[in-house]
Design a binder for these strands. Structure first.
Length: 182
DNA sequence: CCCTGATTCGC
DNA sequence: GCGAATCAGG
């Protein structure tokens, strides 16, 4: 993956918006956060005021959310109602977060888990899926808006980091509480 | 241990 | 120029 003008422009924009290097790497896809940081330095973009810590605002707005069940298959499986339209956003969110999460909230009305990079969905079709694209279904399977997340997914999971958390967290929680009961 | 950016240095 | 490894910090 090379630094095309288009990708450099996106990098500049996202960096200026205050996204962290790892978030930018996730959204560009195909590069590590180190690569992003390296490029930022080579471009002589302004660094963050303080190293480490949370220069990038990344706290999810608290909102009531139904925890989704893991979809059994990728398509044509009735899911617990996942809104496919934008929902009204609570006030108090930062501009940066609004922009970063806008796309994901259009299709998924879930609270992002802590410490998980929220990818920007590419909203791809079935025929566009590869081993490295997130296969989380979006929209209504019976309607034209049905598609897949399509964000960069690790080869260890059918989902991007964000949706992997969505898919497996309920299972993990169930296991944990079962163990707690003994 | 999670995360953050900064720096170095072999490629 | 690139980015993994490493460092330093919250």
């Amino acid at each position: 993956m090379n630094w095309t003008d288009e990708r450099v422009e996106r990098l500049k924009k996202l960096w200026a918006e205050g996204l962290s290097a790892s978030q930018i790497a996730a959204q560009l896809g195909g590069v590590s956060r180190n690569a992003v940081i390296g490029k930022v330095h080579r471009l002589s973009l302004p660094g963050r005021a303080k190293a480490g810590g949370n220069a990038a605002p990344n706290r999810a707005q608290k909102r009531p959310a139904a925890v989704p069940q893991r979809p059994a298959t990728y398509a044509a499986q009735p899911r617990a109602a996942a809104p496919s339209r934008p929902v009204s956003r609570p006030v108090g969110a930062t501009m940066v977060k609004e922009e970063v999460e806008a796309e994901i909230f259009e299709a998924v009305d879930y609270v992002p888990a802590k410490n998980v990079v929220v990818p920007i969905s590419r909203k791809i079709g079935l025929t566009e899926l590869t081993e490295r694209t997130c296969k989380w279904p979006m929209g209504d399977p019976l309607k034209d808006d049905f598609c897949f997340c399509g964000a960069e997914a690790p080869d260890t999971s059918p989902y991007c980091k964000y949706h992997a958390r969505m898919a497996y967290q309920p299972v993990a929680e169930r296991r944990r509480s079962a163990e707690a009961r003994g």
